[in-house]
Amino acid sequence: MPTKSIGEEFLKGFWKENPIFRQLLGMCPTLAVTNAMINGLAMGLATAFVLIFSSLVVSSIKKLIPSQVRIATYIVIIATFVTIADRFLAAFFPPISKNLGPYVPLIVVNCIILGRQEAFSSKNTVGRSLIDAFGMSLGFILGLLILSAIREILGFGTFFGFQVMGQWFKPWIIMILPPGAFITLGILLALALQIERKTKARR
């Protein structure tokens, strides 16, 4: 079945099947925690941790799981790693844990993770699943960073906490509020669609 090369398997998460811009999965953290880049990065890393380890476990025990209870099993596995991530952040990075609030536990219901288990890890080898998980995670982190960079620069005038806009700049508070998330995501999706259309036309 596998027809893609290893490189393609890894790179597809960045653009062709990017979780945020192409698959529109994981919208809850994408919209909720991208008001500052540090939060976006932390959420991306936490999700990556959960995705990679869940893919590893699921792809290695896929033969044992009866298909009738596969979703329940995936959720238990995912929830385990989410709880570990949540406790770890609370213990070692309390400010970030406070900023992300309920959105760390909510990684359990992030569709990217369950989606990758169902669509990929349950059908592929451990090696391929890991490569897929790494690619998807990096694609997700990239998406979160782009979104949070735009929102942080316009909403706070800063980039990763460093002042980049001059004194003249009046922060657009709407950008760090929920409407700003929707507006930015909408514009980015339109851009992504346009780029995709252009590249397709050229091919």
């Binding site: 009046k170 922060p171 657009w172 709407i174 950008m175 509020l177």
Partner: peptide
Amino acid sequence: AFLQTSFPVA
């Protein structure tokens, strides 16, 4: 509404 939310004081 965009302005009101962005620049509430002004």
